[in-house]
Design a protein around this nucleic acid. Sequence first.
DNA 1: CTAATCTATATGTATAGACAACTAAAAGGT
DNA 2: ACCTTTTAGTTGTCTATACATATAGATTAG
Lengths: 253, 253
Amino acid sequence: MKDEIVDKNSIIPIYYQLFKYFEKQIRSGRLQPGDALPTEMEIAARYDISRMTVRRAISELTSAGMVYTQKGKGTFVARPRLDSVVFNLNNFFDEIKQKGMNPHAELLEARIIKADEKLAERLGIDVNTRCLYFRIVITADGEPLAYETKYTIYSKQTPILESQLIDPLLSRLAAAHSDSIPSSSKKVLMVSKATEDEAEVLGVTSGLPVFFMSQTIYDADSKIIAWGKTIYRGDRYKLISYEGWNVEDIKNS
Amino acid sequence: MKDEIVDKNSIIPIYYQLFKYFEKQIRSGRLQPGDALPTEMEIAARYDISRMTVRRAISELTSAGMVYTQKGKGTFVARPRLDSVVFNLNNFFDEIKQKGMNPHAELLEARIIKADEKLAERLGIDVNTRCLYFRIVITADGEPLAYETKYTIYSKQTPILESQLIDPLLSRLAAAHSDSIPSSSKKVLMVSKATEDEAEVLGVTSGLPVFFMSQTIYDADSKIIAWGKTIYRGDRYKLISYEGWNVEDIKNS
DNA sequence: CTAATCTATATGTATAGACAACTAAAAGGT
DNA sequence: ACCTTTTAGTTGTCTATACATATAGATTAG
């Protein structure tokens, strides 16, 4: 009757059962930052499993950032990192749905263009290179939330599907229409005031504070293959970031 | 003369040498998304090492998100995730330094207060609970960049050091002055216009678009132990996020 | 009393092997 | 021609073991 923690006959891997057990201990606060876990040998002996299996469980905990190990000393519960901010700006289709609203993307304009000097400069390409240019507006229950302008190199000449243009992932679009493979991206988030054009599309008064995000997609050779900007309504949009070990609890508070 | 890829006599672990080798192959684009890695047995045989050592290397690649494995099929190079945004808003001390500027934090006000109704509501505590309240302004080369207002529960009554108040990590402060241990945090980023007070502290004109970030620190029982807000000058601050496999290259472009 | 050495203990690396679970293609039967 | 079964090959899990390396405290030498 020592333990129901590890069931060797379960189809669930032993290392995973152990991992989940310690994760629970830490998330609930029963194991607190700085506390030492039992040594690997102790755990192995207690549950009659191999030390390598224990190490696999601890390895998972380590890469989840929940514990850290010190050679010669032991394994300890880590302090949660509460100093970074992780936003998901792209998949707001799902976000809007989750709020019980109906997301929709409307294509305002889509054209094949030849790059002028300004665009050529921005994309690092030659003037007159063929590009795909389009603008969309994203609405929730009919109300505009974001306004996107995007450019991608159009070298494959594949047919353009409206469903593709609506895809919030610029990198996926770039993969479809350029013959380079997206490898890295750079995003810059700024605050700005809505221009007249933006205000009209978004249905707000000109000068309203908005988020301005530019996005650049690079291939493995660090060449630009796509560029886009998105304007988010400042009065309807905010970015929320959760971090730590009992995140699920605080989301409902 | 088959390989200089793995040196068994090196002090660098074999699995790490292997990991670095494949990482390089992927980052450089010689291995592209979708490409299959050699099988574990092949790699093990080729370099005369154990399969478990190969698996360790692949495990590192997997948790770095660079490859994925499919049972019964093989190991494949993953497509980079280019759809999230990771910002580091807090350690801008380092950021400012990196730009060759001189960061400084100035304490505007620091007091022990008893929570009024509004604050008690916000922190989820009783009215009259003792709290630490303070405001700081962060400058680069003397120019104000951000303006922070923070509250933490003050239950330990430890002495307050000015060096602590300047710490950009609110969770560290909360750990020092409350007897709860920070476990999770919630951050909300919005756009706003500078109020008169904010504009004066930041030395800008009232109404300038600014970033507004609120931050709430919770303990393991999901109780609030600290709250803060930060105003970032919109004309001087932008958030940059890099993702992908050749990030180091595009940073210099 | 101090400094160097030893010892016990902890995690880190690496090996060799066994079997399970899954995949895809080959082989076989109807 | 079609469906089923077999088979080879792959990753996943787990074991048992050996030695390396780091830590902290006890022991010892001076």
